[in-house]
């Protein structure tokens, strides 16, 4: 995982994107990287389009905002339309297949994954969709190690929810693996 990673996580208020950004940043600290995490959101606590951004780098980080994402996550339609622009060529874009119908043209590799559906059906709580997404994007990008993101997650979540969150994260890793297998099959 060398070099600088610019990561933009977007969705609607209440989907836990800022928390996902914090956990990703803390995982990168465990890996010994420098990080900056910022956010942009409206005055409402729910709905709309909000984003959390993380920059991970072995170097000192000057400008704290993401200009061209290496990794993009979109958990609702509005945020994908508003924030997916500018993804780097060979970047990675992950959108929620159940909540995002239209993906604008992008130079990034786009993965449409059933993130919220997995949280709802396999964990029983839509609440952990952010953690499923965190698992998927860290496994697809390798920008942080699985061990570090697991440790960072378990340090942050409330007591009594560790098993549910760990399960959600591992389901996210699983979505990534399936997506990579299908991509290889597709290329052949």
């Amino acid at each position: 995982m060398p070099g600088t990673w610019e990561v933009r996580l977007s969705g609607s208020g209440g989907q836990g994107l800022i928390l996902a950004g914090i956990i990703l940043a803390e995982a990168a600290i465990i890996d010994g990287q420098n990080v900056v995490q910022t956010q942009s959101y409206g005055p409402a606590a729910r709905g709309g389009a909000s984003k959390a951004e993380v920059i991970i780098s072995p170097e000192e980080i000057d400008y704290p905002k993401v200009e061209r994402p290496d990794v993009f996550l979109g958990l609702n339609q509005e945020s994908v339309l508003k924030y997916m622009t500018g993804c780097k060529e060979n970047g990675l874009a992950i959108v929620d297949s159940g909540l995002v119908n239209h993906v604008p043209p992008s130079k990034a590799r786009v993965y449409s994954l059933p993130i919220t559906e997995t949280a709802r059906k396999q964990v029983g709580r839509e609440l952990v969709a952010n953690v499923v997404a965190l698992g998927a994007l860290s496994a697809l990008s390798n920008m942080v190690s699985k061990e570090s993101v697991t440790t960072a997650l378990l340090r942050r979540v409330p007591k009594g929810t560790e098993d549910m969150n760990r399960k959600a994260l591992e389901l996210g890793f699983g979505l990534a693996e399936q997506a990579l297998i299908s991509a290889v099959v597709g290329e052949n």
Partner: peptide, 9 residues
């Protein structure tokens, strides 16, 4: 707001 809400290592 940038410095107040920003998180850093």
């Amino acid at each position: 707001e940038v410095v107040g809400h920003m998180r850093e290592k």
